[in-house]
Write a protein that binds this DNA or RNA. Sequence first.
DNA 1: CAATAGATCATCT
DNA 2: GATGATCTATTGC
Length: 209
Amino acid sequence: MRTGANLEWADSIEISGLLAASSILPENFYARPAIDVAHDLLGKVIVHRRTAGRIVEVEAYLGLDDLAAHASAGITDRTRVLFGPPGRAYVYLIYGMHECLNFVAEPDGSAGCVLIRALEPLCGVTTMRTRRPPARRRRDLCSGPGKLTAAMGITRALNGARITAGNLVVRAPADELRFEMCTSPRIGITRCADWPLRFYIKDNQYVSR
DNA sequence: CAATAGATCATCT
DNA sequence: GATGATCTATTGC
């Protein structure tokens, strides 16, 4: 019989193994067009506070011409980070209660980002469950932008933070799996609703519905 | 199974 | 004052 405490301990061991067998994506990884960064983030691993998940679904948000993107409003207090240097987190509150995690792309001065829409839980599943009691099944833990931030303990306090060092990082696993990528329009938007900027891993059960 | 209502607040008009 | 890169519970077939 394993107790909750034992499971937590096992989770931390899993993370140690993961850290040893992977490398953190450097800032220049993000200093490219948002669409390219979105493609290449699939299969990478997000690590934060004793939890880790494999990215299985993302959306690209572009600059001034993309009316679905926050950056289309130009530089404001909220969007400043999107126009800043790449390799930063952009975290905002949506519908008054959920937080969405994005990674800033494009070179400094050019806006663009990638919304993380779903993760496959890898480490700290017990911790994720305590952070997200409503999730009954493992595949419900991180299968949506608001779900994964809750499960991983990611909040607006991380807005603007570097993701190339520190508590929140993205890693390229040494044993990255092969997969096929699918493309579709982005979810939950009204403007530019037919732009094919959503990308996800084909047949992956952790992709959002 | 699908459709829908309600929760709740930062941001911008 | 309206809107929104969402989630959950509930209703109805």
